[in-house]
Computed example of a mutant assay.
Amino acid sequence: MRIGAIEAGGTKFVCGIGNERGDIEDRVSFPTERPEETLRQVIEYFQDKNVEAIGIGSFGPIDIDPASPTYGFVTTTPKPGWGNYDFLGAMKRAFDVPYGWDTDVNAAAFGEATWGAAQGLDSCVYYTIGTGVGVGVYAEGRLVHGLVHPEGGHVLTRRHPEDDFAGVCPYHGDCLEGMAAGPALEKRWGAKGAELGADHPAWGIEAFYIAQAVSSAILLLSPKRVILGGGVMKQEQLFPLVRAEVRRLLAGYVRAEAIADGIDAYIVPPGLGDNAGLSGALALGRAAWEREAAAR
Results as ranks from 00 to 15, higher is better:
Asn106Lys: 05
Leu143Arg: 05
Tyr209Phe: 06
Ala260Arg: 09
Ser29Lys: 07
Ala109Phe: 02
Pro170Asn: 07
Pro98Gly: 05
Gly120Met: 05
Gly252Ala: 02
Glu177Lys: 08
Gly197Leu: 03
Tyr127Asp: 01
Asp199Val: 02
Ala295Met: 07
Leu121Lys: 14
Tyr85His: 14
Asp86His: 15
Thr70Lys: 10
Ala211Ser: 14
Ile129Cys: 10
Trp189Leu: 11
Ala194Ile: 09
Ile205Glu: 11
Phe208Pro: 05
Arg225Cys: 04
Thr77Asp: 03
Asp261Ala: 13
Gly4Arg: 12
Val246Leu: 07
Phe110Ile: 12
Arg93Lys: 15
Leu278Lys: 12
Ala191Pro: 07
Ser123Asp: 01
Gly280His: 03
Glu186Arg: 14
Arg2Glu: 04
Leu185Ala: 06
Ala213Cys: 05
Ala118His: 02
Val168Thr: 15
Gln47Glu: 12
Gly141Leu: 02
Pro161Ser: 10
Ile43Leu: 10
Cys175Glu: 08
Asp86Glu: 04
Gly83Trp: 00
Glu195Lys: 11
Gly190Ala: 09
Leu196Asn: 14
Thr76Arg: 12
Leu88Arg: 11
Pro201Asn: 12
Leu147Val: 07
Pro161Tyr: 04
Ala295Lys: 15
Arg21Gly: 04
Ser29Trp: 04
Glu112Thr: 09
Leu250Phe: 04
Ala181Asp: 05
Tyr171Asn: 13
Trp203Met: 12
Asp174Leu: 01
Gly134Phe: 01
Glu151Cys: 07
Arg291Phe: 00
Gly285His: 09
Tyr85Gly: 06
Ala113Pro: 07
Asp174Tyr: 07
Asp104Asn: 08
Ile64Trp: 07
Glu257Lys: 10
Ala8Arg: 12
Arg188Gln: 14
Pro35Met: 04
Arg2Thr: 10
Glu140Lys: 14
Ala198Trp: 01
Arg225Val: 05
Phe30Thr: 05
Arg248Phe: 01
Asp26Leu: 13
Asn275Arg: 12
Ser68Pro: 12
Gly83Pro: 02
Ala276Val: 10
Leu220Met: 15
Ala180Tyr: 08
Glu257Asp: 14
Phe95Cys: 05
Glu33Trp: 00
Ala251Ser: 13
Tyr171Phe: 15
Val28Leu: 11
Gly167Tyr: 06
Pro183Met: 05
Ala191Gly: 10
Val28Ile: 09
Gly120Thr: 06
Gln237Leu: 06
Pro78Leu: 06
Tyr209Ala: 02
Gln235Glu: 03
Gln47Ala: 15
Ala194Gly: 00
Val14Arg: 15
Leu156Gly: 10
Phe165Gln: 11
Ala258Asn: 09
Ala108Pro: 01
Ala295Trp: 00
Val97Ala: 10
His149Cys: 02
Trp203Gln: 12
Glu257Thr: 06
Phe46Leu: 07
Tyr209Val: 03
Gly190Glu: 10
His149Asn: 11
Ala276Ser: 15
Leu143Met: 12
His154Trp: 01
Gly178Ile: 00
Asp104Phe: 03
Arg142Gly: 09
Arg34Trp: 03
Val148Ala: 11
Ala260Lys: 08
Pro183Arg: 07
Asn275Glu: 15
Trp101Val: 08
